[in-house]
Design a binder for these strands. Sequence first.
DNA 1: ATTGTAAATGAAAATCATTTTCAATAATCA
DNA 2: TGATTATTGAAAATGATTTTCATTTACAAT
Lengths: 155, 155
Amino acid sequence: MRKRSRYFAREELKKSGYKVTPARTAIIDLLSNSKKHLSAEDIFLKIHNISPNIGLTTVYRTLEVLVETGMVCKLDFGDRRARYEFSQGIEKEKHHHHLVCTNCNRIIDYTDFIEDEIELLKKTEKGLSKKYKFEIKNHIIQFYGLCNECRKKII
Amino acid sequence: MRKRSRYFAREELKKSGYKVTPARTAIIDLLSNSKKHLSAEDIFLKIHNISPNIGLTTVYRTLEVLVETGMVCKLDFGDRRARYEFSQGIEKEKHHHHLVCTNCNRIIDYTDFIEDEIELLKKTEKGLSKKYKFEIKNHIIQFYGLCNECRKKII
DNA sequence: ATTGTAAATGAAAATCATTTTCAATAATCA
DNA sequence: TGATTATTGAAAATGATTTTCATTTACAAT
Ligand SMILES: [Mn+2]
Ligand SMILES: [Mn+2]
Ligand SMILES: [Zn+2]
Ligand SMILES: [Zn+2]
């Protein structure tokens, strides 16, 4: 599994004209085996244990590259730091969106209603690209509110 | 029109236990007459011409208050600065979402397909709040891509 | 394998939107 | 009219991200 995604990533990098480097491999390995929504610093620290020679700057630069190739999604949950997760294309089974607790910052991945969502998106996309001649590449849907625990706590 | 929203804002502030101050009134006046998606600094500069005694810090604090009361929406288009616009509640006719051009940062407000969207949101909201016991307060839908001009330019 | 070259990297410094601090001021209410 | 708090402005601090620049590395061509 790890070998598989590593191979895929290597090809993906080459396809986009990027070199395959230890930092890039390490970050891809980490993200492809992690479910969490990690910040650049999270990633830096985890990798630092294994490869103390990879700097934070390189982590930022690598993430930029991985987002550019589409392998990684950059997420923004409103605390002022980007978060990253291995990308699941739309239409794929793992495509999901997020519930964000505004109290404790918990993030819930949900995959429910994705079919309905995709239907709406297609319709919207078609309408909007015609009306505004806008070419949609990407979308965000996010719900903000209170998670179960915080709802109880706050009352 | 201006008087009306000023009156409304005054009541809204009082309702939430906030004092009515010149800075707050000025910012509400500005936003309620502006269609643009203004940053804190934009707002500061515009107001600075009229009331040079209102500081940037106060602008930030005021915006925080106005967002908290629900009178203003805080928007994030991925350049690293918040943008603000006078709030239109969901279900209201002016409720809208945004197309964001990733090349030139142009923002297009769209109100199309909002009925379908609201339908999906209701369904999703109901399903998710049951499944995850998550109380949804707010949502974001945003499309990223290329506007007409940039699409032509880049090819 | 060796080498030339552009791309990638690390460390340190810079950036810059936003927050914090704190002393001074002003809005509200009795 | 005060008294009581919330609000404020200016300056400093914060902190995630970016830039700079000298050094190293990947890899294509030899
Ligand atoms: Mn996720
Ligand atoms: Mn708008
Ligand atoms: Zn929570
Ligand atoms: Zn554009």
